[in-house]
Every structure is written in structure tokens, then in C-alpha cells.
């Protein structure tokens, strides 16, 4: 692999990992969402530094250039992260729906209790 490309890959993967850790430190990113990103950065870093593994994997998946393997894994991880987010959004959507329903049912009862016909009792 071109030394220049190697430098870029190492630099970017390190920057990604530092950014993720910093976001977690500032509580802008929750730990449960950080691990896939850290894994992505770590895998790119390891493959770049440990070139033999990259060559071996390239031969395994039939990639001609090791750099292609690197970017292939980058794209693959991005897709996995997107899918993971879709799953999380689905769960969140259900939670929002259930919470909204609870809130609506509860507040309908509050309105009843405060309605003028009942106010005389209280």
C-alpha cells in the first residue's frame, strides 16, 4: 500500500476514534451507540498497520488491491451502523407511541376530574 494512503487511513481512523471518545466524554453520544463506531475505527486502524492481515483478507474475498479491502470494510461497517440505527429508531418509535398513548389516556382522566361537574366535590 502507498505510504501516503497508509498515513491517511491511520490518521482518519485515529481521528474517528478520538472524536467518538470525545463525544462520549461530553455526553453528546451515549456509550451504547459508540461501540460500533469505535469498532469501525479500530478495524481500519489494525488492517492498515498490520498489512499482512489486509493482504490475507484481500486474497480471501478476492480483492485485487488491499486499499479496496479497507474501503470495502469501511462501507460495510457504515451499512451495519445504518441498519442498527433503523432498528433502534423502530424501537424508539414504539416507545414514543406507547408513551403518547399513556399520556393521552392519563390526561383524559385529569380533564374529567377537573371538569366543572366534579369541581364542586373537591
Amino acid at each position: 500500500m502507498e505510504p501516503r494512503l497508509k498515513m491517511v487511513a491511520i490518521g482518519l481512523s485515529l481521528a474517528l476514534m478520538i472524536l467518538i471518545v470525545e463525544l462520549v466524554r461530553r455526553r453528546r453520544l451515549r456509550e451504547e451507540y459508540s461501540w460500533l463506531w469505535l469498532l469501525t475505527g479500530a478495524v481500519i486502524f489494525v488492517l492498515t498497520v498490520w498489512f499482512d492481515v489486509l493482504v490475507w483478507i484481500s486474497a480471501l474475498i478476492g480483492a485485487k488491491a488491499p486499499a479496496s479491502t479497507l474501503f470495502f470494510f469501511g462501507v460495510l461497517f457504515s451499512m451495519v451502523i445504518s441498519l442498527y440505527f433503523s432498528v433502534r429508531i423502530s424501537a424508539l418509535t414504539d416507545q414514543v407511541k406507547n408513551l403518547t398513548q399513556e399520556l393521552a389516556i392519563l390526561s383524559s382522566q385529569v380533564v374529567i376530574e377537573r371538569s366543572p361537574s366534579n369541581a364542586a366535590d373537591s
Binding site: K97, T100, Q101, L103, A104, I105, S107, S108, V111
Partner: peptide
Amino acid sequence: VISHPINL
């Protein structure tokens, strides 16, 4: 009446 605060 039960009102959803947002459209679900």
C-alpha cells in the same frame, strides 16, 4: 375524548 398530543 382522549387526545394524542401528536399525530400517531
